[in-house]
Write a protein that binds this DNA or RNA. Structure first.
Lengths: 349, 349
DNA sequence: CCTCTGTGTGAGATCGATATCATATTTCTG
DNA sequence: CAGAAATATGATATCGATCTCACACAGAGG
């Protein structure tokens, strides 16, 4: 099929010089005669010489590629980060290899292996599991540049760019509590995932600091897709005693929750108050507008790239763990519980 | 930094055989003694031999990579396709290189060049421009496997997987006309993009087939992001004579339009009816639910992969141009125009 | 006992780019 | 004008995996 590409040898031949001289002319290093250089450049141009990045990579041991491994590229959060990373990386002539782990630790490991053997320059990973990460520690030990995005791992000594999950969740739930809610549902990711843990921790802290007993039955796990979240919501709200409020840990789940509630005929915020982690496009178009914990998405990709490039360029600084603050954006999806049992809520007045 | 990886040579040394024998044992071909093979496998295992895909690629001239070039990975449509492609490709041990063209033909060309020199096995491209595509024709001429996604190009003789843009748009606009609208706004992409052209054509056909004169001032161009679409909407609806209905050509623009209309205090569908191309998660949560032209997104990625792999495996069939039908999903965002001048709409009753 | 075939193995070439080294030529310096 | 320094160039090794080739040695058949 594909006719073979023009190689340095072809160029050298056409310019009537050796490969060595041709290489020197093209990459301008060493001594090259002006006239010879001219002929080489000319030949390269007319033959459409492109260079073979694979051969170059073999020579210098690395491909100018970055492996990007989100949980799911369809999540707008990761899509945004991927986009920003792609753009930033362009400046340093790297390309982006994207491979979703699909939140499967096994797949994460395998993909990492496979990209590793491609001599990728570095990785940006949103680790699927908080515990099971010998493979990541291995990377670090071998000195492979690695930046964790969205999810930090204390065990893995590398750079990370995250968000204050615990604080954000706490603020959200505090806000619900301040509005008189005590039965607050939580729809969260698989608890392997560190962000899920952080957000759960924030949820628990908020409840406990207000002396509200934690009811395990209000905590539901869902995959991070709209469809799963719809199911989870329906499950949660089909129980005999319903939550009066709901906190969802990412935007796809928030959307799923909204759709689930609607399908059950429950009105937001009349029947159920909702706060979601991560803002989304239509949060202000829904009726009511949705109150969310916003993350500074736009800052994550660029910072991650900066850190990664520093490592690639040999920085041996101690790991830099950036954690951005979140911001509660109050809109209209929270009100006081309608059928509230007043006695249980002394702080309400 | 990164300590050097285990090479075949190391394995051979450890197993006390030559590189040739080690290679034979690992890839089982040719004659290898049972005992020697055993030792090699053992050594490879214990040393953690991974193989160097770059060296392999140099040898056989290709990297098991596919270049995927969407207009914007943040568009849920492309994110979905990318995800599906990623998953499908995994089965044939290929990885996905994603690089957004950001709808810039120049960038598309450059990225293509740069991925080309990586000896990528094939490309999936959503071409940014309908006209300016010598670079893609070049690829085809050189026999590089290429599948166009979402946007076909008649000039480029290669496989493509698209959707019936013209028909979908026509159906949408016909539906608006059937509901009594005659001043129908259009928010569309840059007209370089073939999908924009197709959808525009459908829009025009619908109008013309009903004898409605086309008013250029109702056609607005926006980039495909929520933000740009908000602006475009506001611009469109700030003109003295407003459209009574709006057709938007992709889901991000639909969302932007909804937000823009809301910001102007225009209610859907009371003041403005809306139909959007491409369905989206929250289309059924908004109030009203949004009527859309749905595309069979889930089918695009898998088919594109199938076609591309066939090419990679040497198929020389004539180009296969798949075009999926669209489906109008009627929800609640269209009603009869409120201030309609009845006289002009004889067909309304 | 001596070919012939089937096994098993290593040496070395190859893929394409690049860096090192050695070898010319100049050109300059004293 | 000798010798040093600068310039220009080509041979060749290298990166790691793979494959061809040639060679060894076994047992089989004559």
């Amino acid at each position: 099929m594909a006719q073979k590409a023009v190689t340095l040898k072809d160029v050298a031949l056409a310019a009537n010089v050796s490969r060595a001289t041709a290489a020197r002319a093209l990459n301008n290093y060493g001594y090259v005669g002006g006239e010879a250089a001219e002929r080489v450049l000319q030949a390269a141009e007319s033959l459409g010489y492109r260079g073979n990045r694979v051969a170059q990579a073999l020579r210098r041991g690395q491909l100018p590629l970055i492996g990007f491994m989100p949980g799911d590229i369809q999540n707008p959060f990761f899509a945004r980060v991927a986009h920003d990373v792609d753009v930033e990386l362009r400046a340093s002539r790297h390309n982006l290899l994207i491979a979703s782990s699909e939140e499967d630790p096994e797949q994460e490991r395998e993909l990492l292996e496979s990209l590793r053997s491609l001599n990728v320059r570095g990785f940006m990973v949103a680790p699927t599991s908080a515990d099971d990460n010998a493979h990541l520690m291995g990377l670090v030990k071998e000195g492979v540049p690695l930046v964790l995005i969205d999810r930090a791992l204390p065990d893995v000594a590398c750079d990370s760019v995250t968000v204050d999950n615990e604080g954000g969740a706490r603020e959200a739930v505090n806000y619900l509590i301040a509005n008189g809610h005590r039965r607050i549902g939580l729809i969260q990711d698989d608890s392997r995932i560190t962000t899920a843990r952080g957000r759960l921790a924030g949820y628990l802290q908020a409840l406990q600091s207000h002396g509200i007993e934690v009811d395990e039955s209000l905590i539901t796990v869902s995959r991070s897709t709209v469809e799963y979240a719809i199911d989870a919501t329906i499950r949660l709200f089909s129980r005999p005693v319903r939550p009066t409020a709901l906190f969802t840990v990412d935007s796809l789940m928030t959307q799923g929750a909204l759709l689930g509630l609607r399908s059950m005929g429950l009105a937001v915020p009349h029947d159920v108050s909702v706060v979601g982690f991560d803002d989304f496009n239509l949060a202000t178009f829904t009726d009511p507008q949705i109150t969310v914990v916003a993350q500074p998405v736009a800052q994550i990709g660029p910072l991650a790239v900066k850190l990664l490039l520093q490592r690639i360029n040999g920085s041996t600084e101690p790991p830099h763990t950036a954690q951005f603050p979140t911001r509660l954006i109050v809109r209209g999806s929270v009100s006081r519980p309608s059928g509230a049992r007043k006695r249980q809520q002394p702080a309400q007045a």
